[in-house]
Amino acid sequence: MIVGERKPMQEILDMIADHKKIFIAGCGTCVAVCMAGGDKEVSILSSAIKMARNKENKPIEILEQTPLRQCEWEFVDELKDKIEACEAVLSMACGIGVQTLVERFPKVIVYPAVNTTFLGLPEEQGVWSERCGACGNCVLDKTGGICPIVRCSKSLLNGPCGGSQDGKCEVDPEVDCAWQLIYDRLKTLGKLDDLTEILPPKDWSTGRDGGPRKIVREDMKL
């Protein structure tokens, strides 16, 4: 899923400083699961903004709603009345949600209240970590199902580098060395021989390096 984290309060307050009536739009999917921008976080942020503004003697009116997904036309269309009743929208969705609103409501100002952080999973309650870099050219079949593109600090395809110690990455002792994980996994599977093969330079053109990406499926088009 997409993992996000709410922006610092002051940054949010600065963005909406000139507005007297805003609409906070949450998202009921990924950012709700990672507790950054779901229904609950919308009402917490709304209360915090009102309190801060009251303290400054600059009260603000806030409308709230959390559609199931902020990244699909049919769900954001539900927000039309509230959006049009306000000066600006504060989106608590990922960057995709923000841009869906911008594209659907071209005349409205939309601010991001959440930093879209990565594609990952909740490892345990309160801990999320990255798993996929959306490189468009999956190598998991060659690396024991562990992604070196985002889980190795240097995206090595022929790791580990010389900084792997005690199973941890030299960049951050809290981070597992992806290549130690790959080594251990291939060892368990009895496939260590796979590691003697040199993986050639990656074709990065399927990733962000190739420019903005788009998939068109003629078979699915109406």
Binding site: L156, N158, P201
Partner: peptide, 10 residues
């Protein structure tokens, strides 16, 4: 990190 050291060598 377009390449790693081994790919650079090759």
């Amino acid at each position: 990190f377009d390449l790693d050291s081994i790919q650079l060598i090759k």
